[in-house]
Design a protein around this nucleic acid. Structure first.
Lengths: 110, 110
DNA sequence: CAAGTATATGAGTATATGCTCATATAACAA
DNA sequence: TTGTTATATGAGCATATACTCATATACTTG
């Protein structure tokens, strides 16, 4: 059994870029809203209480990263989750953070 | 069955922060090197071909995020993976990216 | 104690990116 | 065509952070 070869720098940059796209609270809010199903921009603006311009930019970022899909219907544009790993990814991180916070809370007891 | 309540902003900021910590190629290199087992700083400097100062800062960032553990032994400081979700997290992202690239490659064929 | 080695950190710079405001584009309606 | 609505985008500003150089700290040895 050989050791696994390290990923080349170009691959690491792609991975880093993926993480960077997910590293904004507002984008996480959008993703979370879309876990609930496809929604038009105006609904997302309302749910996240962001400005239309800002939401539009974030949606573009997520779409370019192939995390969301985009569908035009008349005047509206509907976005939806396009990457099936988003949900497990978020759950993994949330689980890790919960465990950390639980452990830290334990320090205060006894 | 009620819909899941959205995470509060404070939680989303924690999640975003976690992703941000992982959004640097150099930090990913360090993590990858440590998947191989605990290592001292000088070994990590050599493996990643970074400067000592920069590596030290990145290790600090990862440790403060509770992703790495730190152990002093004489003059050396050994770092190791402390968060068991790191490996599956990276595998999830790599898998997603591979699938995306494969799909894009398919566009060129036929 | 002084000297040497491994690691950490203060200061400064450069770059990236999130945000806002204003405006542009696109699709539809009258 | 003109007007209206939904979304996208150009420009500019403010902030965060990755990097380097120099230096400080911590530990060991003589």
């Amino acid at each position: 059994m050989a050791k696994k070869a390290p990923l080349p720098d170009s691959a690491l940059e792609l991975v880093a870029r993926r993480f960077a796209v997910l590293a904004e609270p507002m984008r996480l809010r959008l993703i979370q809203a879309l876990f609930d199903g496809e929604k038009p921009v105006n609904a997302l603006v309302e749910i996240t209480r962001g400005t239309q311009a800002n939401i539009s930019r974030h949606l573009q970022t997520l779409t370019h990263a192939h995390l969301l899909s985009r569908r035009k219907e008349g005047l509206q544009v509907f976005y939806a989750i396009a990457d099936p790993t988003l949900m497990p990814l978020c759950e993994l991180v949330c689980g890790s953070l919960e465990k950390q916070l639980t452990k830290q809370a334990g320090v205060m007891k006894r």
